[in-house]
Amino acid sequence: MNIQTIKNADSSTQITVKRAASTSTKPGASTAQPVAPAATEGSTISLSSTAALASHSSDIDTAKVEAIKAALKDGSYKIDSAAIADGMLGTARDLLRATSR
């Protein structure tokens, strides 16, 4: 897949996505049938200057990310497997309640 981003003079952004052709030639490699892409030549998306600005705003706490990277690098990062398991079980419970209604 080839993704090209172009900044226009009016501060809008144009993104072009081109899909690569399938390279699998092995017979029987997959039982699924290939699906034709919606646009064989590529798809183009244009963002207004407002949308382009919104896409650059970030909800990521970069200080926290850097702290985690440093802890991983020096080996002091601890993973709380019980908290992860509790979160996964809670999500599963919520999904089961939502589907049983």
Results as ranks from 00 to 15, higher is better:
A21M: 07
T5M: 11
T91E: 10
T25L: 09
Q4N: 13
D86S: 14
T44Q: 10
D10L: 08
T25E: 12
A38Q: 14
Q4A: 10
S48P: 02
A38R: 14
S76W: 06
A83Y: 06
Q14F: 00
I45S: 03
S49F: 00
A54K: 02
Q4F: 03
K64W: 03
G28P: 03
S22E: 13
D59S: 12
K26G: 09
A83K: 05
T40R: 07
D86V: 02
A71T: 04
R93I: 10
N2G: 08
T50D: 15
T50Q: 13
A71R: 02
T91A: 13
T44L: 02
H56P: 00
A92C: 06
A29G: 14
Q4C: 05
T25N: 14
S57D: 01
G87D: 11
A83P: 02
A38P: 14
D74K: 05
K26Y: 10
S81I: 10
A20L: 11
T50Y: 08
Q14T: 15
T40V: 07
I68K: 03
S46I: 14
N2V: 15
V35D: 07
A9R: 14
D94A: 15
I15V: 15
K7R: 11
P37G: 00
P37D: 07
T5R: 08
G28S: 09
R93N: 12
A32F: 11
G90E: 12
L47T: 01
A38H: 12
M88D: 09
I3T: 07
I84V: 15
A39F: 11
S58V: 01
A71Y: 06
S22C: 15
H56R: 13
D80L: 09
T91K: 14
I68T: 08
T13M: 11
A32P: 07
A20H: 06
A9Y: 08
A32R: 13
I60F: 02
R19S: 04
L53K: 15
I45G: 03
S24M: 11
